[in-house]
Design a protein around this nucleic acid. Sequence first.
DNA 1: CCGTCAAGGTGGTCGGACCACTACGGCCGA
DNA 2: TCGGCCGTAGTGGTCCGACCACCTTGACGG
Lengths: 233, 233
Amino acid sequence: MDETAPQKGTVTQRAIEQIKAFIAEGRLEPGERLPTERDLAVQLGISRSSMREAIRALTVLGVLEARHGSGIYVTQLEAGDLLETFGVVADLSRGPALVELLQVRRILESTATALAAARITPDQLAEVEKHLLAMNATDDPEEILAHDLAFHREIAAAAGNDTMAAILEGLSSRTFRARVWRGYQEEGAFERTRREHAAIHRALVSRDPEAARAAAAAHVGEVEEWLRAQLGV
Amino acid sequence: MDETAPQKGTVTQRAIEQIKAFIAEGRLEPGERLPTERDLAVQLGISRSSMREAIRALTVLGVLEARHGSGIYVTQLEAGDLLETFGVVADLSRGPALVELLQVRRILESTATALAAARITPDQLAEVEKHLLAMNATDDPEEILAHDLAFHREIAAAAGNDTMAAILEGLSSRTFRARVWRGYQEEGAFERTRREHAAIHRALVSRDPEAARAAAAAHVGEVEEWLRAQLGV
DNA sequence: CCGTCAAGGTGGTCGGACCACTACGGCCGA
DNA sequence: TCGGCCGTAGTGGTCCGACCACCTTGACGG
């Protein structure tokens, strides 16, 4: 009567939970190398195929990292590693969920911008300014979008909360913004966007958190309202 | 000269991207059934093993759902489906990242509570009250935690943004709160927590968004500050 | 008309084989 | 002695074929 496994769920799912538990309990440190797929499979009493599926699952979640020919390693478990999958949500959401995502972004982005106004360093401010100018100097939509993303990314980084920055990164993922912006900018919103970015920049220069919060909220809110109208909500 | 695949990355990774693209392009509707693993493997020109890894990856991301003996289906792609993995972040984060997560939760929770104060229905309010009373009527930490979670979950639901509610759900995942609360409540914070919950409830009854925002922010902020002190930050 | 049950189809698991790549260490030449 | 080259062992990546567990369907018999 070997009372080892409760036999709940698929073996792969169990393997995923066990490896996660190993990490949560500190038996596997960030950056540490795991045993080989073959050894792990033997240890957990499952086939290599099932073990590979478990590893693949944890890989896409940003928990593990497989290096061909070298081995499997635990990631640093930092915000960027684990929240990378957040972009999938933004990419696959549609309809009302897009508005909800923008609402979340408005809340976080406004707070992040307010924090940045109080904490931003001259170097970081210069970087923000660089993207602001570059954005105004071109008419290529692709380039504008790239600098727009970088503009907000720098601000989020200056807020000093890597987790929040990683979430915002996901909420602003390239395909997500491309989908929304395509329609938004067709209505000649370029000039308005430039004005709003300038307002955010001014608030940062003035180190005025409240002005920064308001400017950022208004900026995202504009897009949010436009999208809401588009969907007829 | 068969110019089909660019041969970048692993075949499994490519399969993941292709299926994701199918869904993003609308070629696969939410709830729709996919071809069998065997057929999909043939269509994409890969082995069933690799295809299974791709499917498993999309399953843990909440994009697909495999039903043994029946087939593979696209989920409804709702907030709850896709943001379930968010709990993994909370479960595996440690140290400073925990404080950052609580900070994000403070921002979202305070806004959600403010929204709830303006929109909550009598039925929902009664539900909130039920958990408030149940929480005060017992001394079992496990039960208190359960009602605490439900208390905030009901409020988040009343805010009317499913996406935000799903994120907050992840940020309050059972193991995450258990880890933090274990230490927090050992310092006799029960009474303080009860007072704070009562304050949130009063603000909801008064339909006072600003009071609700302040009460919720203070509530989460208390834990945040305690954790910050614990980590010596 | 409805419950029963058998068969086919589906995902789940397994084991083994081979390929592609990396890392390491010994070998050879400078 | 030193440094680069290269072979080899070991790793993850891919593929195949088989079998199992489970669900769905529809024919059958009551």
